[in-house]
Amino acid sequence: MTKRFARRLALVATMMMLAIPAVSAQQDDEAPPPSKPGKPISAGEVLSGELNAMKIRDVKNAGKRVAMYQITSEPRRLPAPSGLCDLETGPETFQLVTSSDAQAAQLKSFVGKEISVKVDEVACASDPGQMSEAVVTKWSLVRKQ
């Protein structure tokens, strides 16, 4: 009976030695401190990032599928009253609203690439179903020199 007790005690001790480093490693990997808010962006400034395209259903156009373009960038603060869009660091995804077929065609060739746009109007996303955290309603593509 003493041999069984000694084996069990050795097994428990080994398990404890393996579990303690795992628990301490989890404690070291706690959530990082909150990020600082992004730098502000206002009308006339340039927003750069990767351009993504998604197909969404347009409720205004009988549910037709239309392309929606989005820039993924570093976090940015928007001008007041929008501020941080109820986020700690500010929005990172910006929907580019196209006002014409020419703008949509212009963006289509840059999907998946890094682009820069001059922002004229930007606000937090407010409509249900929007895929981005912020919406850029007026913009122009900036050509790289």
Rank of each mutant, 00 (worst) to 15 (best):
R57T: 07
N61H: 10
S24H: 14
S73P: 01
G63V: 05
Q26N: 12
S73F: 05
D58R: 10
S42W: 04
M15S: 06
K39V: 15
V122D: 05
M68R: 12
D28Y: 14
S82F: 10
K113F: 05
R76V: 07
Y69E: 00
P128K: 14
M16R: 08
F5H: 12
E133V: 01
Q106A: 12
K3F: 14
S42R: 08
E88R: 10
A62Q: 11
A6L: 15
I71P: 03
R77N: 02
P40D: 05
S132E: 09
E92T: 07
S99H: 15
K113W: 02
S109C: 08
N52M: 12
F110A: 13
D29H: 14
A123K: 10
D58Y: 08
F5Q: 14
L18I: 05
Q27S: 11
S73R: 03
R7V: 14
S48R: 06
P32C: 02
E30I: 15
A43N: 11
V142F: 07
I56A: 13
G38I: 04
A19F: 12
M15R: 06
Q70N: 08
L141S: 00
V135I: 14
T72V: 14
P128L: 15
E114S: 13
A102R: 13
K118D: 05
A102H: 09
V122W: 00
A123N: 08
I41T: 00
G129I: 08
D29I: 11
M68W: 07
A104N: 09
T98C: 13
E121T: 15
T89I: 10
P34I: 04
R143W: 04
L87P: 02
P40Q: 06
F94R: 01
L141T: 01
S140H: 13
L87G: 00
E50R: 10
A102Y: 10
M16E: 08
G112I: 10
P32T: 04
A25W: 15
I41K: 00
A134R: 01
S126F: 12
V135E: 05
T98Q: 12
S126Y: 09
Q145C: 09
P81W: 06
P21H: 09
L96W: 03
E133A: 07
F5V: 14
V135P: 04
M16V: 11
Q26R: 14
S48K: 04
